[in-house]
Design a protein around this nucleic acid. Sequence first.
RNA 1: GGGCGGUUAGCUCAGCGGUAGAGCAUCGGUCUUACAAACCGGGGGUCGCAGGUUCGAUCCCUGCACCGCCCACCA
Length: 884
Amino acid sequence: MSDKTLLDKAYDPKPVEERWGKFWLENGVFTADARSSKPKFSMVLPPPNVTGHLHVGHALSFTLPDIIARWRRMKGYNVLWLPGMDHASIAVHNVMEQALAQQGLTREELGREEFLKRAWEWKKKYGGIITGQLKKLGASLDWSRERFTMDEGFSRAVRKVFVDLYGEGLIYRDYYLLNRCPHCGTVLSDIEIEHREHQAKLYTLRYPIHDSSEWVEVATTRPETMLGDTAVAVHPDDPRFIRLRGRRAVLPLVGRLIPIIADEKVEKDFGTGAVKVTPAHDPVDFELGRKHRLEQVIVIDGAGRMTEAAGPDFQGLDRFEAREKVVERLREQGYLVKVEDYSHAVGHCYRCKTVIEPNLSWQWFVRIAPLAKEAIRAVEDGRIEFVPSNWAKTYFEWMYNIHDWCISRQLWWGHRIPAWYCRECGTVAVAMEAPPSCPKCGSGKLEQDPDVLDTWFSSALWPFGTLGWPEDTADLRTFYPTDLMSTAFDIIFFWVARMIMMGLKFMGRIPFRQVFINGLVRDLKRRKMSKSEGNVIDPLEMIEKYGTDALRFTLAALAVPGQDLSLSEERMAGYRTFANKIWNASRFVLMNTGPGSPTPAGPTAASGKPSLADRWIRSRLARVMEELDEALENFRFYEAADRIYHFIWDEFCDWYIELAKSDLKAPRSATPAVLESTLDHILKLLHPFMPFITEEIWHHLPGAGRSLALAEFPAPRPEWKDEAVEAEMKALQEIIVQTRTIRTENKIPPHRKVGLWLRPLPGADRAALDGRQDYILSLANLSSLKLTDRFPDGRPLLKGIAAGFELAIPQDEELDPAQEKLRLEKELAKLVQEIEKLSQRLRNESFLERAPQAVVEEVRSKLQELEQKKAKTEEHLGQVFGVK
RNA sequence: GGGCGGUUAGCUCAGCGGUAGAGCAUCGGUCUUACAAACCGGGGGUCGCAGGUUCGAUCCCUGCACCGCCCACCA
């Protein structure tokens, strides 16, 4: 890729990201092959709204599956990750109508046709913003298969599903009380309502009993609805109201006589124990009304304005104005008993946050129970697995209590309901295409239902509609069912559950095998990010500042299953540093193994004798490779990230490269080859997390292929693991660290070379040391030490114990006895404390009896070791400073 | 009202039955020829509270407290 063998000194993400992002797309690196013989792994992207722009939630829920996709691809799977966009009817209406309002226009004034024309133009112009941003993130999507929920094929799929369900009686039309958003001008389904706590008032009203001087008190939070009351209800067992049974009340302000009914739904202990019933404006009252065959008087229309039925005093008023006025009138006329502060939950539109208005209208519904039954079973019997598994509980709870789904919306942008009404005979014709005439009376006067379908109705078909259904395509055969659905918990009901129902219904098979639910991204105070709070972290800004790889790695490192994550910029800065670290480690490797270097990693090196460090890093690498697979298999992104991070930084950079510096000096060393191959492995292992920088560096290595994204992910190499080598290395590391500590605490300047004298403690393996003399020497160089064979008499010594060795640093100058004494005493105190803990356990007979032998043994040998150490330390103290 | 999750080092978070970990911050020392966006060393936690189970609990059980979220037809 590049002639340069030496990379720039600091890593600059921008040009690298630009170059490789473009390269991947232009070369079809992520294009799947429906006819491949490789095992397939498929996912569909949760289609972002066309109104969307990338926020950090997207960044998370696209990065995680991308890591999986890239990992699988490198492991030899035929990976399809299919992108697309959702037409998002309500959201689009919101933004477009807002724009219209600025011109003083409403959509009605514009007309349906013109509105749709503009919507399409708008989609064309702005709809691709988020997909462009997705590309920036490095998401390895197959753009050749991009779909849109309103493209022709998909729309056809939507119509077919509607027609088929209708044919089976699973879609029906009903006159029902539903949540309507007065602002958006459409009904909403139950889950599109957000409940928010309101500090409101509870009004107690007094309704006179007809033909009597008595009255009944009722409580309400919505006095304006009293104009539409058609009953008062009490509990059948409530003794207070037995005398009122069968009587009628006179509705104040209106004068209508309304029955007093008894129903068990009424809570005896709430309010006055009697409740006003408004079947046309309250969900409970609506049910009550159907049960008791009460009249429905509509006093508020869908836009939240009072109707003619509300009476001349109120007609045309907004519902909240009407509330004030009704209360005023009631007060004037003595019907208002009291007003109390009252806090309760009020439904709001999930899009525009307007208080919803229950409203009666004709709507289309999906009869959900039969579909839900199958969908429940698919999760129960494990065909579909939720990760983390506790989300299955959320899913079940909703599915068990699921209500029929209202799918019609009074909007224009979307899939128009394929139903035609005959103006002559009133027949409803449901069909894929407009029928030329009424199938019943033959009249040509047919009118299509003006409404469109709930956006989620079409999203529900995403896993198969995007693959070509209802056609029997190669893609559909190869890639359905998909393997993984990765998404956030807030759309389990909206989307996941419905995809499962529709997939089972129309494909006869589950739409995906696993559902991975990622956490929510919160700010540092654990608050949800929202524009109004002003606590939004903009991923694009982060990319600009820290690079995409750093952003991706941060998200992965914070992605603990089942946990929301608090995104911190500091953390991201840390991973930018990590990228730079990798960059520089690679520079080191390339400088020392490249063709121009004094120690090229050619065939000679490959056949050279591996040093201890060579064998050690290989062994450690083998472990990381295993752990990474395991972690990704289980969606433990944070674990994978943490593991690779520490392997690269601590083991590869801080130890191996440092050791390599002296190993490289040995004749016929294998180190250049090991350096190069370890880097190659590191790049591959890290690529799913940090695709850009790894791809860039990889192309500087000999033997790099077309793209690292298509290279083979390192397969497990158990034969590389070497316990003995790791143990030996660990001992040597301990010795080094110990000497460094001694030096630092005695303020020996880092650059001053001092001698190191080593003697195995009784019981330690002397041979292990002897055989490694030269090696220890090179290790010692790490800390400006030189190994001395002979204990130099008569000079001050700094002493320590590490890994079964007694060590001493002879000092050329006078050392500060106070300093050294302090160090040893501190050390001693620590030892005494630990020894006490351990011996306490060993003194406990129950422990000796009941704990596993291995544990007891471990404690014993640890204790022995500590005691030896303690003895030595005391000896040092006594010897050198005369302290006993 | 029902359910779910959280409470571990100054901050953000891992760990979850056998002597407490990371990143950042902090203290001390280094420009050691890949990297000062670095290197070396150190300090810092009675793991929310109270009981229980266990040889042994941060980890399991019960209760409590506080924080966050989801669901819900007490008007």
